[in-house]
Design a protein around this nucleic acid. Structure first.
Lengths: 150, 150
DNA sequence: TCTTGCTTCTCTAGTCGCTAGAGATTGTAG
DNA sequence: CTACAATCTCTAGCGACTAGAGAAGCAAGA
């Protein structure tokens, strides 16, 4: 039966070789059989699976969510409510990140707009950073990254 | 002269103790003098410096940009064109992140909206992920994270 | 003075999702 | 048979922290 080596697989899917091995290591992609010389020989189905992973990563799903989505994708008779739920959670997440980034954008925009371009002594950028009281918005909730995917 | 220990300093600035030590380690905050018992005793000015750092981090500036901004802030007679430039670069960055997130949001939104909530077999979420051809947008430029601050 | 308990110290390791490099082996084309 | 490319494993690094161990310092009350 047809098989594909890791290099061509990387070319096919746009995922780098070390990343493919990394996905195997963390159990996202099953370990493929090996050649006599110990090289990975993937079944052609691996292409689809990796493309799925890549696409989900591009859409900002984290590895854990992808793991769940893959499990779901493997059970065609299962209800898709769970997949829907995962996607909705992710959507909420994206929306809140956008909202927070927009607040940042407005703040930085004001900072830049107010700068008279003279000496540091009167620089609005520096001033605003030094004194939170000059801010137009509150501190964000300290934890929770604005985003953290690639 | 008055000094402040690391704990109260953390309380004052909202930056956690290990993070303050980390900032020292990477040279963002100068090493303070120590007590006889080897504890850090910060000059009161450290409060302002850390608040500056915290605020800039909250606004999404990365450590390197903050390092540059701090250097600038220490030179009141210097032109503020450079601070302005840094802020503008950062603004562009934020704006492009927003744009990319909005594209993601639209895509995920469509995925969710189109899902009939039936079996996995017909699930739009899974389907779209499995087949990039069903996408409403292109792959992003593969590298470049959407964002990566806290 | 002693004890209790909080604070701080250093050090190491873990997080996430990769990426890069060393040095050894395997496979293939000429 | 010889190059050279592809792949192997292993370790370490990125950014910006966070968590925990185990030891030591310090202040207040008995």
């Amino acid at each position: 039966m047809p098989a594909i080596a890791i290099g061509p697989l990387a070319d096919e899917t746009g995922i780098k070789i070390p990343t493919i091995r990394y996905y195997e290591e963390i159990g996202l992609l099953p370990s493929p059989p090996r050649s006599r010389g110990n090289r990975r020989l993937y079944p052609m189905a691996a292409i689809g699976r990796l493309r799925f992973i890549r696409h989900a990563r591009d859409l900002g799903f984290d590895i854990d969510a992808i793991r769940q989505l893959l499990t779901l994708a493997d059970q065609p008779d299962h209800s898709c409510a769970e997949a829907d739920r995962l996607a909705r959670i992710h959507l909420d997440d994206i929306e809140s990140k956008i909202a927070r980034l927009e607040a940042l954008r407005d703040e930085v925009r004001h900072m830049v707009a107010d700068c008279a371009q003279d000496r540091i002594r009167q620089c609005r950028v520096i001033e605003v950073l030094a004194d939170h009281g000059q801010c137009r918005h509150d501190h964000p909730p300290a934890s929770s990254p604005v985003i953290n995917n690639r």
